[in-house]
């Protein structure tokens, strides 16, 4: 079984990831109170995405999986969500123009 067993991450790594996530949370709250113009939303979502990616890669072990399929599934999930959002917004953002 040993050749197929999953990667075992050390508790130290988990704690480091946790710290990173906490720092990101603090950052995102802080950034919200600074006027960055239209960048505010982008920064907030950027940090959220960074956090999500870290959780997926390290807590959910996608970084260590041998299965390309798992990665494909994760990526396609987000891809189709973006498709739903982008194509819907394509309508809403151009309604006033025509």
């Amino acid at each position: 079984m040993s050749d197929t067993s999953e990667h075992i991450s050390s508790p130290k790594l988990y704690v480091a990831i946790w710290l990173l996530l906490m720092v990101c949370t603090a950052l995102t709250v802080g950034a919200a109170f600074i006027d960055l113009g239209p960048l505010n939303t982008i920064v907030a979502l950027g940090i959220a995405t960074l956090k999500a990616v870290v959780v997926v890669l390290y807590f959910m072990h996608v970084k260590y999986t041998h299965e390309r399929m798992t990665k494909a599934v994760v990526v396609s999930g987000f891809f189709f969500l973006l498709l739903l959002l982008a194509l819907s917004m394509m309508d809403y953002t151009t309604r006033g123009l025509g």
Binding site: F80, L83, L87, M90, D91, Y92, T93, T94, R95, G96, L97, G98
Partner: peptide, 22 residues
């Protein structure tokens, strides 16, 4: 199949540009 749904809505009031692309 996921890229074409709004062709059901051409006369419903979606934007002309979106309608063209769909």
């Amino acid at each position: 199949g996921f890229l074409v749904w709004a062709h059901h809505m051409f006369v419903a009031g979606i934007s002309l540009y979106a309608a063209l692309i769909f």
